[in-house]
Design a protein around this nucleic acid. Structure first.
Lengths: 151, 151
DNA sequence: TAATTATACATAGCTTGGCTATGCAAATTC
DNA sequence: GAATTTGCATAGCCAAGCTATGTATAATTA
């Protein structure tokens, strides 16, 4: 029923909010979630223009300009001039950026692992299935957005 | 196996990161995730001292002082003097804060619903189960922390 | 009991992530 | 060729996060 779907969605966002803080705090807090999110998007979806990267990441274009600047300073992305449009850049994840992302994931998963160590195989499968469900909806929201939809 | 657990945990944090942005962007962005997270913690766990609220929320004490100040301005929490310790306050969710939280949840879930509308009952159950799994681990991390543990 | 140490919260000051408004140059359209 | 649209950058603001430090109360201990 719709009521239950809404409840679950609300709980999902709420719990995620706290999990994100937990992940940030168990890592050394060296880099922000926004940095890792941006690299992850680039790795998952491939090189794209700055504006599209902003839309996919659900941040404003100026915010993405800043993030890309920071990532560029770290050497974690490449800016490739877009042949055919002198205004545009293609933003691509540098291998070092991917490596940094993996290192961060290692760090937080190692820190979180004890707390989740007693999960059964079924529970792990449940989490994996949920990740897939949310991932497909994020992708859907992305493509819907491109066609002018709201959510 | 452990490898798969780590992969799932990393994916979970990554996907949540993007979902949090989606939720923030579909809402009017009127208030920050930190505000809602704090009220949610107070509602779930009941009144507590500012310092404990900071630890549970995984933010520093000065950050929580600021958040509580903002929440107080909105009238969404109450500061109750702790009888027996003149330094301490008990922070309690005001009914208006709970109402504001529910209104925000209504807003974001209404906005997200179309994207998730085609979920089967099984998929909804999977999401609900995941929420419960993560919630229990957050609670475990909280109590472990109080006994001096790291994660 | 008086002095010391520890605790609870507040303040100061910084960085980063987020936003809107605006500017500028290149593409596109008329 | 002029006007409009588009893509990114800049400016300037606020909130959330941090560390370092201050201040008052508790707790401890000499």
């Amino acid at each position: 029923m719709t009521t239950e779907l809404r409840t679950v969605l609300g709980d999902l966002v709420s719990v995620n909010n706290r999990l994100t803080r937990l992940a940030a705090s168990v890592s050394g807090n060296a880099e922000s979630p926004a940095i890792w999110r941006t690299i992850a998007v680039l790795r998952d979806l491939g090189p794209m223009r700055l504006g599209e990267l902003a839309r996919v990441s659900r941040v404003s274009q100026p915010t993405m300009t800043k993030l890309v600047h920071t990532l560029d300073e770290r050497g974690w992305i490449r800016r490739i001039a877009d042949a055919g449009d002198a205004r545009a850049w293609l933003i691509s994840a540098d291998p070092s950026g991917g490596a940094a992302l993996l290192a961060w994931r290692d760090e937080i998963t190692a820190a979180l692992e004890p707390t989740f160590a007693d999960l059964t195989d079924d529970e792990i499968a449940t989490l994996a299935a949920s990740v897939e469900i949310v991932r497909t909806r994020l992708e859907r929201a992305r493509t819907a957005m491109q066609t002018g939809d709201v959510a």
